[in-house]
């Protein structure tokens, strides 16, 4: 009986997580367009619903009813597989992400995470690396020069950014003496990691921007020079899959930044519910992503490579060494 309850709870949590993550891009697109509008002294969507609140729903209907077009010379199997490959890993990653300790519902303590892996951090980086396959396959299968160029850029970008990103979090692991995200957050109960690891956070955040393929590192889709990059030939719901994947990854990088460097659900000064603290911090990072997007220009391809290999990698190495010397 207990086993069934526990299993049911896990299934319920996973279902809830999937539902939230699938639906969250809807308000996020609205927020992004509003922020974009106001930064450019426009108003953003205003006509569908109150201040355009129903705009994402209208967009969703539009995407669902559009023709699902596959180019004539495309590799049909890979073309259909790519959006799923891009969509699945960001969702899988959230299995290992804790959103808080416990909440008590109906006299039962329910944990706010699906699983507490002892190698959660490793799992996160391993799985999130798979997302790039969707992008590469999508660009390759479409048989379009813009899409292939976008995919090529993604390959190079991922190689030069996964490594500094992985190195940047080693400092955090050294501080917490654990790879479990739960333990990492517990270790930050008094002082957040950002105090000890400013360089690590900087490297992680820049690499995270590249990981989420957002401006200033959105070379894979670069509207200006590549049409739409790897998803140039995609339309309808397959395009929506890529968009959802992009937003979920943005969310994931925000969540990781909060968990690894900003104390997770540990609050300061103002006593708020831990979950609320966590969500506020994540919202701030999501806003930061959008703010960056409408402020900075896109880096050139060679500049991106130079930053990745010549700046971020040595910085993250130095961070590991300094952390090792100080905290050993």
């Amino acid at each position: 009986m207990e086993l069934i309850v526990a299993l049911g709870l896990i299934v319920f949590k996973v279902a809830l997580l999937i539902a939230i993550l699938l639906l969250l891009p809807l308000p996020l697109t609205w927020v992004e367009r509003k922020i974009a509008g106001h930064i450019q002294q426009r108003m953003g969507p205003m006509r569908v619903g109150w201040h355009g609140l129903l705009q994402p729903v209208a967009d969703g209907i539009k995407l669902l009813t559009k023709e699902d077009h596959i180019p004539a010379e495309a590799d049909r199997f890979l073309f259909k597989l790519a959006p799923i490959l891009a969509l699945a890993p960001p969702f899988v990653v959230f299995v290992a992400i804790p959103f808080g300790e416990t909440v008590s519902v109906l006299n039962a303590e329910i944990t706010l995470y699906v699983s507490n892996m002892n190698v959660a951090l490793l799992f996160v980086f391993a799985v999130i690396g798979l997302e790039v396959y969707g992008v590469i396959f999508g660009g390759w299968a479409a048989n379009s020069k813009y899409a292939v160029l976008g995919s090529l850029r993604t390959c190079a970008q991922m190689i030069s950014y996964e490594i500094p990103m992985g190195f940047a979090v080693i400092g955090v692991v050294m501080l917490a003496q654990s790879m479990s995200l739960l333990e990492i957050v517990r270790a930050q109960a008094d002082v957040w990691n950002i105090v000890y690891q400013p360089i690590g956070f900087f490297v992680f955040f820049v690499a995270g921007l590249a990981e989420a393929q957002r401006i200033p590192f959105d070379l894979a889709e670069a509207e200006g020079d590549l049409g739409a990059g790897f998803h140039t030939e995609y339309s309808g719901i397959r395009f929506a899959f890529f968009m959802i994947s992009e937003y979920v990854i943005m969310l994931l990088v925000s969540v990781l930044a909060v968990i690894l460097f900003f104390g997770g659900w540990n609050g300061v000064l103002i006593p708020l519910p831990p979950l609320l603290w966590f969500l506020l911090k994540v919202a701030f990072f999501v806003y930061l992503f959008m703010w960056f997007r409408f402020t900075f220009p896109r880096y050139r391809y060679d500049q991106l490579m130079a930053i990745g290999w010549k700046v971020l990698l040595p910085l993250s190495m130095a961070n590991i060494i300094i952390t090792g010397i100080i905290f050993s």
Binding site: G37, H38, I39, Q41, M43, M46, W291, F296
Partner: peptide, 20 residues
């Protein structure tokens, strides 16, 4: 650059909501 765009974000939009 960030502070500039942040200031713009809270300035009045120039959009005239013409037909609405």
């Amino acid at each position: 650059g960030l502070s500039l765009t942040f200031g713009y974000m809270f300035s009045r939009p120039v959009t005239m909501q013409y037909p609405d």
